[in-house]
Design a protein around this nucleic acid. Structure first.
Length: 202
DNA sequence: CTCTCGATGCGCT
DNA sequence: GCGCATCGAGAGA
């Protein structure tokens, strides 16, 4: 199967974020394929972005963001949740795209088991939910999505411009004016979007 | 439906 | 110690 390669990720983060909509996130677990279409993402760009984990410089935790584009950056937060990001731009420039929601397509019964919920939108409609549904944790931090046999991205149907909505990122209020940047992208009307979808696209 | 709040581990100041 | 790029239960309307 075709997968997204290095040049795709080695581009401006906002471009990568928008183009990731409609692509398929694939996770192989014990020989089984778990997958879904990306429907919501957020961009985090550089040390100047007050909402970015790298805003206070390089640390052991965020070092993957400074690495090769196409790597997976997984972090642990709130004492119980994981979030998955895709590293973008050139090496040594910290930037990534947070996967906030996917629309399940393959391995749904396994996702139901991992999540302990059985309604389709509840499986993957949030950054920590989809990590639980796909069994993504820190063991995958730094994984190369262009070569890994455990997790990767495949091109999907391209989403036309009129179905792409943008707005401020979620949960970053402490980030001063960066909290207002319209760096969240989603597929308008998809049933698997994350919770706060009150922001209208129009 | 909306809002509030507790859970829970750890990276970093 | 503090503060999380969150989630889900529970209460109230």
């Amino acid at each position: 199967m075709k997968r997204l390669n290095r040049p795709f990720f080695h581009r401006p983060t906002l471009t990568v974020a928008r183009d990731l909509l409609g692509c398929t996130l694939v996770r192989i677990l014990e020989g089984q394929r778990l997958a879904g279409t990306i429907v919501e993402v957020e961009a985090y760009i550089g040390e100047a972005d007050q909402a970015c984990h790298a805003s206070r410089g390089r640390t052991p935790r965020n070092s993957v963001m400074y690495g090769t584009p196409g790597m997976l950056y997984v972090y642990f937060t709130y004492g119980m949740h994981h979030c998955a990001n895709i590293v973008t731009e050139r090496e040594d420039f910290p930037a990534a795209v947070l996967i906030r929601a996917i629309h399940p397509t393959d391995g749904i019964s396994q996702m139901i088991r991992f999540r302990g919920r059985d309604s389709l939108p509840e499986l993957t409609s949030g950054p920590a939910k989809l990590c639980q549904a796909l069994a993504i944790d820190r063991a995958l931090n730094g994984e190369d999505l262009t070569t890994s046999s455990r997790i990767w991205l495949e091109p999907g149907s391209s989403i036309p411009e009129e179905r792409v909505a943008t707005g401020p990122r979620i949960g970053v209020e402490g980030a001063r004016e960066a909290a207002l940047y319209p760096w969240r992208f989603w597929v308008s009307g998809d049933p698997c979007l994350s919770r706060p979808r009150r922001i209208k696209s129009t």
